[in-house]
């Protein structure tokens, strides 16, 4: 059986048609670019937000809400890509495309350092903010000190637990999550010396079914207050605590609608101050050399948001008072939550 070269013709042809089409329509330009309309006396900053997931995911929703808030305030003209590709080359293309379209600020809401560096080199006049860990040129670093709020959550957990066993499940054992779980444990131990903590690392950021299994296994080992790190683990955790009727804390966004009676509260990550700072640096042309944006409890970047529908246990009043005190101490800089990144 001989293979005939023309069997590949359909592909040839399709490519040819597309290329011809490109030549045909490529020449008229959309005339994109230029600044936005005047608002509040200031020119709006053309901004693109690139999210690694859908906006229904807690992590991406926080990014989305932060950018939307700035849009409502008339600070920025916003374009959004959700569920962006996960490969470095793919993200690079998306970011480069936005830069080419005249955006002055790219908010890359994931750990996309390499893609950001690539694009930053091509487009030195664009401020790119991402979860980088090396400072370079025009790529600003977003720091997420969510462990500070997790410490406060841990204090409440230490007061609530009756079994003296608490649990935390995370997508991967990476510093981001490790620090959160360690701070949760440290907070609990501060108010309750007997507390034992069970950590589970699932090995998957998205699989909610595995997240649910992990929390269930912790509950079977006696855990009665739990926390999670990562979208899938957190969603699964909320379902598990609802079924077992124990207490837990939401991750990154307000998750109280998912388990209204069972969530004591949520550790919140609020991106508005981050994005606001990035916008300001574009306006003042002060993003080269790059900045490191970090807004902790003191600056409204992270917080512990309590859920007033919580109804599993009574939170002891003295623990609540202690927590409030520590919160103030963190805010004033008097106390620093230890950051344990793990190995």
């Amino acid at each position: 059986m001989r293979r005939k070269w023309w069997r590949a013709v359909p592909i040839w042809l399709a490519t040819a048609v597309l290329v011809a089409g490109a030549a045909g329509c490529g020449d008229d330009d959309d005339g994109a670019g230029g600044g936005g309309e005047q608002a509040g006396g200031q020119e709006k900053v053309k901004t693109a937000l690139v999210l690694p997931c859908a906006t229904s995911d807690p992590w991406c929703k926080q990014g989305f809400d932060g950018a939307k808030a700035l849009e409502r305030r008339g600070e920025i003209d916003l374009e959004v890509t959700t569920s962006a590709p996960q490969d470095t080359a793919g993200v690079t293309r998306v970011l480069a495309q936005y830069a080419q379209g005249g955006n002055q600020l790219l908010l890359a809401h994931s750990t996309w350092q390499d893609a950001a560096f690539d694009v930053a080199e091509q487009f030195p006049d664009v401020n790119i903010a991402t979860y980088a860990f090396e400072l370079r040129d025009n790529v600003a670093i977003l720091e997420e000190p969510i462990y500070q709020a997790a410490y406060l959550a841990g204090m409440l957990a230490g007061g609530i637990t009756e079994s003296n066993t608490i649990g935390g499940s995370a997508g991967q054992d990476v510093p981001l999550c490790h620090a959160e779980l360690e701070a949760f444990e440290a907070g609990a131990k501060r108010v309750n010396k007997q507390v034992k903590m069970i950590d589970t690392y699932i090995g998957d950021w998205n699989d909610a079914a595995k997240g649910k299994q992990a929390t269930q296994a912790q509950i079977d080992q006696g855990a009665d207050v739990v926390i999670a790190c990562g979208g899938g683990p957190a969603t699964g955790m909320a379902q598990a605590i609802k079924e077992a009727n124990i207490s837990g804390f939401g991750y990154v966004g307000d998750m109280s609608s998912q388990a209204p009676k069972n969530l004591v509260g949520s550790v919140m990550y609020n991106l508005e101050p981050y994005f606001e700072a990035a916008v300001k640096d574009v306006r003042n042309d002060s993003f080269r050399p790059a900045k490191r944006y970090e807004f902790g409890l003191a600056d409204g970047g992270v917080d512990l948001k309590l859920n007033d529908r919580y109804a599993v246990k009574e939170i002891p009043a003295d623990v609540m008072r202690q927590m409030e005190q520590v919160k103030d101490q963190i805010a004033s800089g008097e106390f620093k939550v230890p950051y344990e990144a793990g190995t």
């Binding site: 649990g167 991967q172 054992d173 034992k196 069970i198 950590d199 589970t200 690392y201 699932i202 090995g203 595995k210 299994q213 992990a214 296994a217 912790q218 079977d220 080992q221 793990g342 190995t343």
Partner: peptide, 23 residues
């Protein structure tokens, strides 16, 4: 799959010394 998750929960601290990827 369920076994590996349970082993982690029961072993307490082991998770941090044995790579989770093995599980």
């Amino acid at each position: 799959d369920a076994l590996q998750i349970r082993v982690q929960a029961v072993s307490g601290g082991i998770a941090s010394s044995v790579p989770t990827e093995i599980f």
